[in-house]
Amino acid sequence: MEFIDSHAHIYSEQFNDDREQAVAQASAEGVGKIYMPNIDHTSIDAMLAAEEKFPGQCIPMMGLHPTSVNRDFERELYLVEEWLNKREFAAIGECGIDLYWDKTLLQEQQEALKVQVALAKKHQLPLVLHTRDSFEETYAILAEAQDGSLQGIFHCFSGTVEQAEKVKELGFLMGIGGVATFKNGGLDKILPHVQLSDLVLETDCPYLAPVPHRGKRNQPAYLPLVGRRVAELMNKPVGEVAAVTSQNALRLFKL
Rank of each mutant, 00 (worst) to 15 (best):
K254R: 14
V238M: 14
S158A: 15
H213I: 02
V128N: 05
A90K: 00
K86F: 02
R251A: 15
A8E: 08
V194R: 08
A143M: 03
H41I: 05
D98L: 00
S12I: 14
V244Q: 05
K103F: 00
E162Q: 15
A180M: 08
R229S: 12
Y11A: 10
E165N: 12
K122C: 07
W101E: 00
R228D: 15
L84D: 04
E51R: 11
G215L: 07
Q163K: 06
Y78S: 10
S158C: 14
V161Q: 13
P66L: 01
L255Q: 12
L233A: 15
Q21N: 13
N85S: 05
S197M: 05
L106F: 11
T245Q: 00
Q57R: 10
T131K: 00
K216S: 15
F182M: 11
G227C: 10
Q57I: 13
S6M: 09
R71A: 11
Q116I: 03
L150W: 04
A46F: 02
N248D: 11
L199Q: 12
Y139A: 09
L105D: 00
K236D: 06
M1W: 03
V117M: 05
A180N: 06
F154E: 06
K53S: 09
V161Y: 11
M36I: 12
V69T: 03
A91I: 01
F253D: 13
N70Q: 02
V200L: 15
G215S: 14
L208T: 06
K168I: 14
H123N: 01
Q124V: 09
T67I: 09
V238D: 12
I190F: 15
P224Y: 12
E52A: 15
V80C: 07
Q107F: 00
Q109M: 10
A140F: 06
R228Y: 12
Q110R: 12
Q21M: 09
M234H: 10
K166G: 07
K122L: 03
E144M: 11
R87K: 12
G186C: 13
V80P: 00
V128C: 12
T181C: 04
Q14T: 12
P126L: 01
L99W: 03
D102Y: 00
Q247W: 00
V80S: 09
M61D: 08
I59C: 08
G227V: 14
K53D: 03
D45M: 01
E20I: 10
N248T: 11
F15N: 00
V23K: 02
S134L: 07
Q107H: 05
H213Y: 15
A143V: 11
Q146S: 15
K122E: 13
L191P: 10
A49P: 04
H123L: 03
S246Y: 04
V241L: 05
R71M: 06
K121F: 04
L255D: 07
E81R: 02
D188K: 04
G63Q: 01
H155F: 05
A242Y: 10
S43E: 04
P224Q: 06
P206V: 04
D98M: 03
Q219F: 09
Q14W: 04
A243W: 04
A145F: 08
Y78L: 12
E111F: 01
Q151C: 15
V226W: 08
S149V: 09
P55G: 08
Y78M: 09
R87H: 01
F182W: 06
P224L: 13
